[in-house]
Design a protein around this nucleic acid. Structure first.
Lengths: 349, 349
DNA sequence: GTAGATCGTGAGAGCGCTCTCACGACGTGC
DNA sequence: GCACGTCGTGAGAGCGCTCTCACGATCTAC
């Protein structure tokens, strides 16, 4: 053994193992890949040789012939403010990673930080570096899913794609979650319920607004444009929206914010305006992020199963990869209302 | 062209391009890799052919011969509570990703979620899938850095490695940051300053405690064991620690918490105990996470340059990869105190 | 006892690329 | 006019692996 060459896998090839074990390369390959057509004795010899040499298969060589990379790409473009404010990301990645490693697959993370990096990402994914791609948090009418699908790469999107259909996706039940938040406020005796919505060009924003409206309708309350204010998922935006609502409808007694961060902003503005939460105004957020628990008062919020979303995306992707040309599927995960003090009050009735 | 074969790079090889361009494979390879020794005419022809065929080089084949993968691994073990509470991660990844993509390198994310997954990670990294590895948030005396280094893989650790030296790392100036926080409290007129420390087996915990002690000493204050309570970086732990401190030293008038989350817990306990912040007690956190700005009152906190840390880790790694066998280096990034209301008060003097 | 199936094994042909080396076509210096 | 670089190009040898195919040995069925 050459000097400086520790007993690791560097430089040890299939061939070396075969020689030591006294068998052919093919047999070693079979053992390594779990092919059952190998005699017990040969298998033992090979395993011993692998152990002794510290052999580790060269992934590039393998990938070259199998045409698989055993890794998948996860694309997360520059998040639109929202995603960096709370641990959405880490949790999603955790779910994805858990599901992948259970299948011995690797995760290649791509974070294009400017629109001009997208071609690079597309190129990378199309080159065969990955066996499939997971796309999250797309803005506007991103063409990436379609472009990749056209190239034959299995793709699954996280969150309902703005562009619409033609691609598999996993989303949480934004409509249902928002609806349940409003129902909760109505149950608490609130009658003038406003919403601070997300960006109108993001499906999470659109769907939560839709759920709010459905919730009002279900409770027999009339919609009012003055009770709807759109923001950008940030705290500052939420505060601003709350001010607009207070100006238009000073009699507001319930607020559903499409994110906890916006709810926190609203909380601040309400406090400054002399409204007590939850005595005068009840408030419900969305995400159940860490800020919901630490806010004063703690925020009632709609929890999303983020890890599960990551897991499900992987499952869907692999399903798609195993049967090419299958129709796109969608999976909607249900949300759950987490009650905290911000919606406890309400009029005695 | 066979049916179903869209005009993409799949199946298009160097050879095909060479034939179309009327040159040899070697020449095409030169053009693709930017080798200057190619005639103008040939170059033009090749570029046209590449464009026309939509050729994308096969990464596996390339990697097989170059022995580089052009990607690096980022290992993030199951975070010890702390890291999921705030956007440390996404920001770090963003910094890493930015620096990598500027160099056309890819990021392979590995998140071993249980100790038994570590061998898998080590194996993966050692197999040559990556050209180097970045390790963050190691617990205890993780053997991974040493194991990888022994295999000849360039490694850089984020945060001072608990095991100690022998490996390059990037860290923030935890000692200096803590010290400046304490100095700030002293300047505000506080004299009975407690600390809520992090886990004593993590370097961030150890170093911030050290900084706290240095800060006291610099201000001429005597240390007191009853003023030091260790916790686990969580809000609950911070609350618990604050209770212990109040029990032992009811006269406490300043608190330095080694994380914002713990500071938030302390805030809650102080409020319940009838102490006003910042009038009666000043409090300073660490991290300057989103929770610092949303807390009531907003928390003064020590900001860490997280993105920059990611960037610097990449630079260090590449430096190391370019000169194998060079001595381990460390880079310490400075922190910055962000003043908010939680430390505004203080006695008039 | 023979034809046929079954089983473990090895030989060898690639996968698509890079890179060394050799070679012919020029230019340059004396 | 000849030896000597220089420059662009092509031929071809691998990189380390998988996988098909052929082959001899052993087993089953009649």
């Amino acid at each position: 053994m050459a000097a400086g060459e520790a007993g690791n896998g560097r430089g040890i090839t299939l061939d070396a193992v075969a020689r030591v074990a006294g068998v052919s390369r093919a047999t070693v390959s079979r053992v390594v890949n779990g092919n059952p057509k190998v005699g017990d004795e040969a298998k033992r010899q090979v395993e011993r040789a692998i152990e002794r040499l510290g052999y580790i298969p060269n992934p590039a060589a393998r990938s070259l012939v199998t045409r698989r990379s055993d890794s998948i790409g996860v694309v997360i473009p520059e998040p639109p403010g929202m995603l960096f404010g709370d641990p959405f990301f880490p949790r999603l990645l955790r779910g994805i990673s858990a599901e992948l490693s259970a299948r011995n697959l690797q995760l290649v993370l791509l974070m294009p930080q400017a629109p001009d990096e997208e071609p690079r990402v597309e190129r990378y994914l199309a080159a065969g570096h990955v066996d499939g791609a997971l796309l999250v948090s797309l803005h506007g009418d991103d063409s990436l899913p379609a472009a990749l699908a056209a190239r034959g790469l299995p793709v699954v999107v996280g969150g309902r794609p703005p562009g619409g259909e033609g691609v598999s996706y996993v989303d949480v039940d934004n409509v249902g979650g928002a609806k349940s938040a409003v129902a909760h406020l109505i149950r608490a005796g609130r009658r003038v319920i406003a919403t601070i919505g997300g960006p109108p060009d993001m499906s999470a924003g659109i769907d939560r607004l839709e759920g709010y409206r459905q919730g009002l309708a279900a409770g027999g309350l009339a919609p009012d444009a003055a009770l709807e204010a759109a923001a950008d998922f940030t705290q500052e935006g939420g505060a601003e929206a709350m001010r607009r609502i207070l100006a238009g409808r000073p009699d507001v007694d319930g607020v559903f914010a499409a994110s906890d961060l916006m709810a926190a902003g609203a909380l601040q503005v309400l406090r400054e305006a002399g409204r007590r939460v939850p005595e005068d105004v009840s408030i419900v957020g969305f995400d159940d992020s860490s800020i919901a628990a630490t806010a004063e008062p703690p925020l009632t919020s709609v929890r999303q199963p983020i890890e599960e979303m990551g897991r499900e995306m992987v499952r869907l992707l692999l399903e798609q990869a195993s049967r090419p040309g299958s129709v796109p599927r969608k999976v909607i995960l249900s949300t759950q209302l987490v009650r905290r003090r911000s919606s406890e009050g309400g009029p005695k009735r």
